[in-house]
Amino acid sequence: MSTTMTPATPATAMPRRRLGPVALGLRQGRLEITQFLRSRESVVFTLGFPVIMIMIFASIFDGEIAPGVRFTQYFVTGMIATGLMTVSFQNLGIWIPIERDRGVLKRYRGTPMPKWAYFAGKVILVVVIGVAETALLLAVSAALFDLELPGTAAKWLTFGWVSALGITACTLCGIAISSLARSSRSGSAVVTPVALVLQFISGVFFVFTQLPSWMQQVAALFPLKWMCQGLRSVFLPDAFGAQEPGGSFELGRVALVLAAWCVIGLLLCLGTFRWTTKRDG
C-alpha cells in the first residue's frame, strides 16, 4: 500500500483538553437532572406518588399498632422503600428503553464519551431525586401524620446505609432489566408488574408478618423486603424487632442481601446492556 507521508493533523498536534472523569460524570448528571426537571409529568408523579400513598394509608389506618406507636411509623418504611425503588428501578427500566429506541444511546456510542459516563449520569439523577423525594415524604408525614423521625445518630446512620445499598441495588437491576424491553413502549410493561408484585409481597401495603409464609419466603429473595425491614429498624422501637420473621431486624442479613443484589445487578448490566435496539443487529 501507499507509504505517502502526510503531516500530523492539527487535531493531534493541539494540546489535549479532554474533561476529567469527575467533570464528565457531573455534567452527565446535570444533563439528566435538567431533562428530568423539565418534564413536568415525571416530576409530579415520581415525587408525588409516595406522598399521595402515605396520605391514603395514614388516613385509612389511623390507629396505633402499639401503645404510643402510630401505624404511620410502620407504613412510612414501605413508602420510603417503594419511593426509592420507583426512582431507580422503575424510572430506569422505563426510560432507558425509550432512550435506546429513540437512538439516544446509539448517538452517545458514536462519540468519544466513555460508556460509564452514561451510567454515572443516571446514578446521579437517581440519587438526587431519591433524596429529594424521601425528604418530601418525611416532611409531609411529620407535619400531617405525627411521624416520629429517628432519634439517634445510629438510626440515621442505618437509614443512610440501608437507603444507599437499596437504591444502588435497584438502580443496577433497573439498568439490567431495561435490556429486556424490546421497544420503548414495552419498558413499563416489563417493569410495572415486577414492581407491583414485589410491593405486595414485601410488606409495603400489608404488615409483612401477616402474609402467608411462602409469600414471605419468595419476598425474601428480592431486595425490597430487606429495604423495608432495614427501615423498620429505623422508624419502629427496638422491641418490635422480636416480631420480625427472623426474631430481630437482622441488619447484618439486610446488608448482605442488598450487597448481593448489587453484585447480581452489576453482573447483569455488564453482561446484557445493549446500546442499540434488536433490529439494529
Binding site: A11, Q35, R38, S39, V104, K106, R107, G110
Partner: peptide
C-alpha cells in the same frame, strides 16, 4: 478514533427537553 470520526445517523435520538 471516535474523536476523529463524525456520525450523522438516520433517525437519531432527540433530547426533547433540552
Amino acid at each position: 478514533w471516535r474523536s476523529r470520526v463524525g456520525i450523522v445517523l438516520q433517525g437519531t435520538g432527540e433530547f426533547d427537553e433540552l
